[in-house]
């Protein structure tokens, strides 16, 4: 079968690209759309560096064939600070020195975003579980876990100050 046009809503924009059969979402994002935040680490689902949100769920973009998610909504790290303003997770990572080489950071942040969407006040165990599929070879994880707990607190405070509900899902309901 020939290559196929794939249409996705990526970071709120409709995007199209041509993909050979079996192209991964990660390749589509990086090589066709120029969105290089998601990283190609192990290419087998073990490292989490390619984590993005597809239809609101954290998934490994290297394990999704693009044909199977044609039409889906994708959010990458580039879409988190779309207006040029770092969000709570990003600023907590920055302030807490939760990045060193930075290779795992995009995946860590997207895994953290997915956690905070479901659970605005996670305990340490829940944070550890949320990033248990994301490898970091620099930090020893401690600063990352602290940053995610800190980000949750910042987001709760920001939402409370704005009089908004703490969970995105409550807004929808």
């Amino acid at each position: 079968m020939a290559s196929q046009v794939i249409a996705l809503v990526v970071n709120d924009e409709e995007r199209e690209f041509i993909a050979k059969p079996g192209t991964s979402l990660l390749s589509g994002l990086r090589d066709s759309l120029g969105l290089t935040a998601a990283k190609r680490g192990c290419a087998q689902g073990g490292c989490g560096a390619c984590t993005v949100l597809v239809d609101g769920k954290a998934v490994l973009s290297c394990l999704l064939a693009v044909e199977t998610i044609n039409g889906a909504t994708v959010r990458t790290l580039e879409g988190v600070a779309a207006d040029g303003q770092l969000d709570e997770v990003q600023s907590a990572f920055l302030d807490g020195f939760a990045t060193q080489c930075g290779f795992c950071t995009p995946g860590m942040i997207m895994a953290a975003e997915a956690l905070l969407d479901r659970n605005p006040d996670p305990g340490e165990d829940e944070v550890a579980e949320a990033i248990s599929g994301n490898h970091c070879r620099c930090t020893g994880y401690r600063p990352i876990m602290n940053a995610i707990v800190d980000a949750a607190r910042r987001r709760r405070e920001a939402r409370a100050a704005a009089g908004a509900p703490a969970r995105v899902s409550e807004e929808v309901a």
């Binding site: 079996g22 991964s24 290419a43 087998q44 689902g45 064939a65 199977t68 998610i69």
Partner: peptide, 27 residues
């Protein structure tokens, strides 16, 4: 046949293609 892709796509990524045609059960 593949469903979630977590077993088949690592093979595809490494060029160890299990067959020329894949059938996704996603839909």
């Amino acid at each position: 046949v593949m469903a979630g892709g977590t077993a088949v796509m690592p093979l595809v990524n490494y060029g160890i293609v299990p067959g020329p045609e894949l059938v996704s059960l996603r839909r």
